[in-house]
Design a protein around this nucleic acid. Structure first.
Lengths: 229, 229
DNA sequence: CGCGCAGTTGATCTACGTCAAGCAAAGTGG
DNA sequence: CCACTTTGCTTGACGTAGATCAACTGCGCG
């Protein structure tokens, strides 16, 4: 599944229409949630869809844009546990309350719907699979292996190598996803460039030069030799 | 949910009964799977129930003992993604094949059953919740916070503080669960003892002296002051 | 008894975090 | 249109939590 984070084309007329705001969202103070038509929610950059502790009645499917699902500690340490592009459902949680927050990375549209037992097995199993991958990454991979894994994940299955890969994620968010410091992410972007695996493009995108090389690093097959002085 | 890892009481008569061996298990070469009655599987210490890549048709519920679910890299780095005691179901996987191995920590009994869509929602959601907790632990917690979290997890909800907590997990397995080196686990057991939170008992058990203290450390609320010289 | 295995302890190393400048692009406003 | 700030990114210097390597200690067991 390819991730496609193109910002939602803002439909001016839609924002002014009769707004349907699910109770869960209306209840969150200090937030304006713009809804287009029934059950379609538009989120701004950095706007939360729900936060930890919110009552959880609905599931949400990303229509355009992208969300991050994140867990936080009292002292502010953050771990992003998922980055969801179009087609992905978010909002799975045990018990009646969310154990994570969901925040839009870019202006995004999500569709709300009811949960129906048995209907979302495949999505939940995929989520379990991703989280196990993440656990292996966070527990046992080196910084450069984590970054290579991240890039491959953002590419998805069907990726056209001839065009740049862009991801709607700032350095700090990449760091919080990979369990690293922001500066470590930077340095390892540079390391991948120096090894000729990627080339810089814009701020939020890179050219992928050697997918198999990235795969070798991500899997730990490529031993990382220290640079000679 | 309390974790209860008492070894299965070996029922000699049962082992000799007509064995039902699910195809998935019978197909695994070099392993003897002892089955008592229909669908009940007895595993020895360290014996795999399934390994990564096995076709996945069934779900398993732990009846007694305990299993670890683990993911491995080509070079041998291991990450345990779950430790399942009695009552827990294991075997959830996307696609037709297991993405993890399941190995008995102690002599264990598991019950095999078919998957029925919609029936296991609660278990899957609980699994997602646990994996998110694990991601936060692996990505952002210090060694001593990880160990405190682990001990609290092994206690479960209803734990009798007056009796020792025992867990069927060797130091190396704790290390592979917490994303640490074996020696680091040792040193932090000592650190918790020195701070008076736990007291040594047998090899595989400790007395819990201060649950709230452990909780404070696990949540990151207790700043870990460096020991003065 | 002596072997082997799990755990502990100590000494040292290193990958990554932290702190602190710089830098470039994108506003902002006079 | 050009100073001036803001914001995210990069780079460098340095510190440290935890990994690694290496003894050593019990303890069970043939």
């Amino acid at each position: 599944m390819s991730q496609h984070f193109a910002p939602a084309v803002a439909d001016d007329a839609a924002g002014a229409g009769a707004a349907f705001v699910p109770p869960i969202l209306a209840s969150r103070s200090g937030q304006r949630v713009f809804t287009a038509r029934r059950h379609l929610i538009c989120l701004n950059d950095n706007q939360p869809l729900f936060v930890e502790g919110d009552p959880a009645h609905l599931l949400f499917t990303v229509v355009s844009g992208g969300l991050m699902i994140l867990r936080q500690m009292a002292d502010g340490r953050r771990q992003i546990v998922d980055i969801a592009g179009p087609g992905r459902s978010v909002g799975f949680t045990a018990g009646g309350r969310h154990d994570c927050a969901a925040v839009a990375l870019v202006p995004s549209e999500v569709a709300a719907r009811e949960r129906h037992p048995g209907q979302d097995d495949a999505q939940m199993l995929a989520e379990i699979h991703r989280l196990r991958d993440l656990a292996l990454l966070l527990g046992r991979k080196t910084a450069i292996e984590r970054l290579a894994t991240f890039l491959l994940e953002m590419m998805g299955e069907d990726f056209d190598q001839s065009q740049p890969l862009d991801f709607p994620v700032w350095r700090q968010d990449i760091a919080d996803y990979l369990g690293l410091a922001l500066e470590t992410v930077c340095r390892n972007f540079v390391a991948l460039k120096k090894r000729g695996l990627i080339a810089p493009a814009n701020r939020e995108s890179v050219h992928i030069l050697d997918i198999d090389g990235l795969r070798r690093i991500a899997s730990g097959a490529a031993a990382v030799e220290t640079t000679c002085p």
